[in-house]
Computed example of a mutant assay.
Amino acid sequence: MKVLSVLRVGLLALAALIGAVSMASAADGSISIRIVKAGFVVGGSAGDGVLTFQGRKYPLSVGGLSYGFTFGASETRLHGTVRNIRRPSDVSGVYAQGGAGAALGKGAQVVVLTNQNGAILELGGEQKGVIVSLDLSGLALSLK
């Protein structure tokens, strides 16, 4: 019984060490993206961007769909930080969100999103256009 307890504590310590080492190897980068969105009930978005990671620039493609109440069109430019990535391809994936918003002319945007690779986008920027939305949406980023 005592051997099992010591073994269990040893395994927990090893798991904690592995987790700490993997988190230590994660790095941050910066990102800029431009998204054009339009829709009537079902919306679509497309755009492009640039990831800057460890001194290199990587072009990005942006796409997405939304479903709910969406009416209008807008262009959004976002800039910010990508956290918890080990390599540029970690930023690729689907970022899901639900939200409500409206823009008439210009409006500010702030968003924090996470994908299946653990990449965290912290973005802020400006939205231009005429759009009203209450929807669920998915944003897909990929390296070009």
Rank of each mutant, 00 (worst) to 15 (best):
residue 2 K to N: 10
residue 2 K to W: 03
residue 3 V to E: 12
residue 5 S to V: 15
residue 6 V to R: 12
residue 6 V to D: 14
residue 7 L to E: 15
residue 10 G to W: 02
residue 10 G to C: 06
residue 11 L to F: 08
residue 14 L to F: 09
residue 15 A to S: 12
residue 15 A to T: 13
residue 16 A to Y: 07
residue 17 L to K: 10
residue 18 I to P: 00
residue 20 A to I: 01
residue 22 S to L: 05
residue 25 S to E: 07
residue 27 A to N: 11
residue 28 D to E: 09
residue 30 S to T: 15
residue 32 S to R: 02
residue 32 S to F: 03
residue 34 R to L: 13
residue 36 V to R: 02
residue 37 K to P: 06
residue 38 A to Q: 09
residue 39 G to N: 09
residue 39 G to Y: 00
residue 40 F to Y: 13
residue 41 V to K: 07
residue 41 V to H: 09
residue 45 S to Q: 12
residue 46 A to Y: 12
residue 48 D to V: 04
residue 50 V to W: 07
residue 50 V to I: 15
residue 51 L to W: 10
residue 53 F to T: 15
residue 54 Q to K: 14
residue 55 G to F: 10
residue 55 G to R: 13
residue 55 G to N: 09
residue 55 G to K: 11
residue 55 G to H: 10
residue 56 R to F: 05
residue 62 V to L: 04
residue 62 V to I: 11
residue 63 G to E: 02
residue 64 G to W: 05
residue 66 S to P: 13
residue 67 Y to E: 07
residue 69 F to S: 05
residue 70 T to K: 01
residue 70 T to G: 06
residue 73 A to S: 08
residue 73 A to K: 05
residue 74 S to R: 06
residue 74 S to T: 09
residue 75 E to I: 04
residue 76 T to G: 02
residue 76 T to L: 01
residue 76 T to S: 09
residue 77 R to H: 01
residue 78 L to I: 11
residue 79 H to E: 11
residue 79 H to V: 15
residue 80 G to N: 03
residue 81 T to K: 14
residue 81 T to I: 08
residue 83 R to F: 09
residue 85 I to S: 07
residue 85 I to E: 13
residue 87 R to K: 13
residue 90 D to V: 12
residue 90 D to A: 15
residue 91 V to G: 03
residue 94 V to P: 00
residue 96 A to Q: 03
residue 97 Q to N: 10
residue 98 G to W: 05
residue 101 G to H: 13
residue 102 A to V: 15
residue 103 A to D: 12
residue 107 G to S: 08
residue 109 Q to I: 04
residue 109 Q to E: 13
residue 110 V to G: 08
residue 114 T to Y: 00
residue 114 T to I: 14
residue 117 N to L: 05
residue 118 G to Q: 15
residue 118 G to C: 01
residue 118 G to A: 08
residue 119 A to R: 14
residue 119 A to T: 14
residue 121 L to F: 14
residue 123 L to S: 10
residue 125 G to W: 08
residue 128 K to A: 11
residue 135 D to L: 01
residue 137 S to Y: 02
residue 137 S to G: 02
residue 137 S to I: 00
residue 138 G to S: 01
residue 138 G to P: 04
residue 138 G to W: 06
residue 142 S to R: 14
residue 142 S to N: 02
residue 143 L to I: 15
